[in-house]
Amino acid sequence: MAVVAGKSSGNIIFKVLAYTLCILLAVISLFPFVIMIINSTRSTTQIQQHAVSLIPSTYFLSNMEVLLGKSFDPLKGFFNSLIISSSSTICTVYFSTMTAYALVAYDWRLRKPFFTLIMCVLMIPAQVTSIGFYQFVYKIGLTNNFLALILPSIAAPTVVFFMRQYMIPALPMEILQSARIDGAGEIRIFNQIALPMMKPAMATQAIFAFVTSWNSLFLPQILLIDTDKHTLPIMVSQLNGDIYRTEFGAIYLGLFLTVLPVLVIYFLLSKHIIAGVALGGVKG
């Protein structure tokens, strides 16, 4: 893959524009994080005076004290969140790929209606179905149970849709056929041939799924009423809910602690986004 064109002036203009755009966007995108981190070192009064500052202050420890003093147990919240988010991420990604595989690799009579159904589910406004969802969960006795948040993630229409769209051009039927000729069973073909080929798509969706699950507040808040089962976002929203004496420094610290694990997971998975695991190689 030799570079065909030389260093023309067009290239330079392109690069200048590209870098300017990238740096500008990077500044805007990092801005919320910088504010969050800096504000977590500032006192409530300082924040109320100037909500945004680029100069860190010295109240990090006292904010931490306030945070821990308020029946805020970040470690417990962290583990609860981690269990829920990682389980539902695995469920979402694995089963959605499987469903998409069923839609792409096989020709069955109800395939089209099934896909239409998935698309319909995708479009249903979520605010009101939550009433029925809550009632159902209550009835089968899954309140205060992580399963109520994990199991539904097996049926994730958006992810199925993405996997299907990605799979159509990226999964060559020839390979499946040759595997069949080699005598591999369908389940093995899926797990050992199709799944690895979907890696970049799965990594992308895994991040999205993890972030969504980690940040979700409304359902966990009404389903997990037991304090021992609270997730990090619930704990932070409780800090915010204490209307008489809002501790802004502690809130920002809480927000930062909430986002930190996601950042770590994200950086771990991001190599797939950066490298993109050359699909072409498999396709060869």
Partner: peptide, 27 residues
């Protein structure tokens, strides 16, 4: 005691309390 604290922000306290009252039981 088993305490359940749900802040009024985000409007979550009342729906949750209502459901818990309606459902009854030991919880």
């Amino acid at each position: 005691i088993k305490e359940t604290i749900i802040p009024t922000t985000d409007g979550a306290y009342q729906p949750a309390l209502d459901q818990a009252l309606i459902a009854g039981g030991d919880d």
